[in-house]
Design a protein around this nucleic acid. Sequence first.
DNA 1: ACCCAGGGTCATA
DNA 2: TATGACCATGGG
Length: 229
Amino acid sequence: MRKTSDPDRRARRRWAVRAHATLLEQHGPQRWWPAEGRFEIMVGSVLAQNTAWRNVEKAVANLKAADMLHAEAIAQAEPEVLAQLIRPSGYFNVKARRLGSFCAWYARAGGYRKLRYWPTMRLRKALLGVHGVGPETADDILLYAFDRPVFVIDAYTRRIFARLGTIRGNEAYDELREVFEHQLARRSTVYAEFHALIVRHGNQVCRPTPRCEDCGLNAMCRFHRHQPV
DNA sequence: ACCCAGGGTCATA
DNA sequence: TATGACCATGGG
């Protein structure tokens, strides 16, 4: 029996590439992140922590209506005022403080015009040093606001690929990030599109109780194969 | 009425 | 390293 050619074998091992192609076929291009400017993306990624996007939109709209969508304005705002504006996004007291500390850092660093020249990993460390910015929020900002080739790991990523059987799901954040980054072409456009597809698939198809009948990944899914008929 | 949503921090073992 | 409590709104 003939041995599989090396390129085929490599492609089969790179399940992230196959999943990306399949999800792109099923859902189409996502064109993320849904926001108007870079700073709005950064604000959104803080407010989106463990929160439905619908609620984030309301909070961002409130900030915009109050003409507060600027780092200086947010950094100088009274915590209570800020909290009321972002109330729909939940955890409003916590997030008011997080948004404040992020904007204070951002303004002090000179904003995008200065930060754009920072090396990616230096920028990542600086972001992680801001109170309230953890690995996922930092990587959202790096990928979608700074166009850096950093892959974002979120709860959807863990759930989908744990079900597929390609990861356990409880790996350390940076370990998973590097697995995905190594499997894909190191380009921010690829990472951005793939993560967007993962989010789309995670909240429409691979939900807590999965809708396997609507899923294009069944052929490569261990979870689906083990489902009773 | 319950579960979940594009997490992170802090205390504890 | 690894759990658990806590934060809080709104939609299904």
